[in-house]
Design a protein around this nucleic acid. Structure first.
Lengths: 105, 105
DNA sequence: ACCATAAGTTAACTTTAATTTACTTTTAAA
DNA sequence: TTTAAAAGTAAATTAAAGTTAACTTATGGT
């Protein structure tokens, strides 16, 4: 990690988005950028710490989903973010038969 | 989608994992498999509906994180699953300076 | 206005995920 | 216990993600 971190001026410092809402890629991107800037880390700080290239990190922070999950999880873990899984219960019922045994959804 | 879906016998029908637990790739994999089997869909059903190859789907259901996020999201959306983002607040404090302005985390 | 630092872009290249096809194994219904 | 459908695996090819390195564009402090 770079020594200059403590000397660095305060950068943009994006506001934290509402994390209770259900997921969207843009929202994840915002959360990551907000966390990183809030912790006063540069893209290079993170990219060096995680051995991840800067272009990939930027793709992640732009909400591009054409990125390996592994890389996104590395970044999230490093910044103290994580997912939880939500099951949209009883919403879509595309059964042709109407059979309804053994179903919890 | 295959016509034989209504004729198919009931497959494994894995139990739904506890989604309140903190996120792990394995848990996501379990949730996806549980949802799919609960909806009585085969891997080929899903793979055809989403134009996604069977090997990739299997990687996802095995918890392999070397998969594009886009593909995982396609599957989740189709099955009625989604993420929410969690911020582990006030947990890791790796400041060297102790400076604490402009920080919400 | 200057200047250093961070952010973002681009192109050539490397690595690897994803597909295709075919095959093997497992599963459960008849 | 046969047997057809589903799950899982493997190898070869294709498509695309990831890296590197150099460059351009912001951004903010002095």
């Amino acid at each position: 990690m770079s020594i200059k971190k403590t000397l660095g001026r305060v950068v943009k410092s994006t506001n934290m988005p509402d994390l209770t809402k259900s997921f969207s890629p843009e929202q994840l991107a915002e959360a990551i950028t907000a966390k990183r800037t809030g912790m006063k880390l540069t893209l290079v700080d993170v990219s060096e710490a995680l051995s991840l290239s800067k272009p990939t990190l930027i793709k992640i922070e732009k909400g591009d989903t054409n990125v390996k999950l592994a890389n996104i999880l590395k970044v999230m873990e490093y910044l103290g973010l994580s997912f939880s899984i939500i099951s949209d219960e009883h919403t879509k019922n595309n059964n042709t038969t109407g059979a309804s045994d053994d179903q919890w959804y």
